[in-house]
Computed example of a mutant assay.
Amino acid sequence: MPPPVFRFAPSPNGYLHLGHAFSALLNADLARESGGGFLLRIEDIDPARCRPEFETAIDEDLAWLGLSWEKPVRRQSEHFAEYRAALEELTALGLVYPSFESRTEVARLIAEREKEAPWPRDPDGAPLYPGSARLLSAEERQRLLKSGAPFALRLDMAAACARVGKLCWTERGEGPAGEAGTITADPAAWGDVIIARKETPTSYHLSVVVDDALQGITEVVRGQDLFWATSVHRLLQELLALPQPTFRHHRLIRDAAGQKLSKSTDATGLRELRARGVTAAEIRRRIGLA
């Protein structure tokens, strides 16, 4: 039986914080204890937010924590052709359609529907897609595409779920409410998710399952905030005939107010802690790793 393979996959759109340190160290620890491999993947499909200096900082911070990883490092921005091929597979199955509403138009549609009743939300609390682009005629779609209008490519969730039937995954960690063991996936709870855009032939959901398969990842170890997103990933794995890894969702590192640490809220970065004289050993103690 081949050894397990783990990965840490940050986006270079900000500096790493204690939450990243916990995930990276946990993956590396599990890889070492099991005699497995530890990979670093750079998830940089968003050119507007991802910057080279943040990738350099990721390397420096992880090395300071005492980590090493197999080379070469996979950068998503270098593999758009592979994501495009996966997207074409889904399109050939009749499971992808373009939606042309702007974010403002989507918000207006939701507001109109909520005048009648609460509009359904996905597990992250975001409203499900309310539009009717799936019902556009082929002629109208072609007209809009030829006009150069911006669009998002969405997965026809009802058709996709009907194609694969019941799904589950093996959870070796736990979900937000302590879920563990064999978990029944519920991809329909996410509605018609975006899997690509006009300017980018992929999304997080699509690229992460393609990457994990191509890199031979057997153990996906990540935060509990991605627990229910696993439902979408299991669906895409089945549709694309990709291998199913084992999942382990870990606790989140939170601030004094109980909020998850985030780049968007300017959580204190590892490089700042290092500049203050905090040691890598102290980082381990702070996040509860021996």
Rank of each mutant, 00 (worst) to 15 (best):
P3H: 01
P3W: 00
F6A: 03
R7W: 01
F8R: 00
N13L: 00
Y15V: 09
H17A: 10
G19V: 06
H20L: 12
F22C: 05
L25W: 02
L26G: 07
A28I: 08
R32P: 08
R32H: 14
E33W: 06
G35I: 13
G37Q: 10
F38C: 11
L39D: 04
I42G: 10
D46M: 00
A48Y: 00
R51L: 02
D59L: 11
E60G: 07
E60C: 04
D61I: 06
L62V: 09
A63V: 12
W64F: 08
L67R: 09
S68N: 14
S68D: 15
E70G: 09
E70Q: 10
R75L: 13
R75F: 14
S77D: 10
H79S: 14
A81G: 01
A81K: 00
A81D: 15
Y83N: 09
A86V: 08
E88G: 15
E89G: 15
L90P: 13
L90H: 09
A92S: 13
A92C: 03
F100P: 10
S102W: 07
R103Y: 03
T104Q: 09
E105V: 05
E105T: 05
E105D: 07
V106T: 12
E112A: 15
K115H: 11
W119N: 09
R121S: 15
P123F: 03
D124C: 03
G125I: 02
Y129L: 02
Y129F: 12
G131E: 05
S132A: 10
R134W: 02
L135C: 01
L135Y: 10
A138K: 10
E139L: 07
R143V: 07
L145I: 08
S147C: 07
R154T: 14
R154F: 08
R154L: 12
R154M: 13
D156T: 11
M157V: 13
A158I: 14
A160T: 05
A162C: 05
K166Q: 14
L167K: 03
E174D: 07
G178I: 05
A180E: 07
A185W: 01
D186P: 00
P187G: 11
V193M: 03
T200D: 10
P201A: 06
T202R: 02
S203P: 14
Y204Q: 07
V208S: 06
V209N: 05
A213L: 02
A213S: 08
L214M: 05
L214E: 12
Q215R: 00
Q215N: 02
Q215E: 14
G216K: 00
I217T: 01
F227M: 11
W228L: 05
W228I: 00
S231N: 01
V232M: 01
V232Q: 00
H233M: 02
R234L: 09
Q237M: 13
E238H: 15
L242R: 01
L242P: 04
Q244E: 13
T246F: 08
T246L: 11
R248V: 06
R248E: 04
R248H: 09
Q259W: 04
Q259S: 13
K260D: 06
S264M: 06
S264P: 13
T265E: 15
D266M: 04
D266F: 02
A267C: 03
G269Q: 07
E272V: 14
G277F: 07
V278L: 14
V278D: 08
V278M: 06
A280L: 10
E282C: 01
I283Q: 06
I283D: 09
I287E: 12
L289G: 15
A290M: 06
A290E: 14
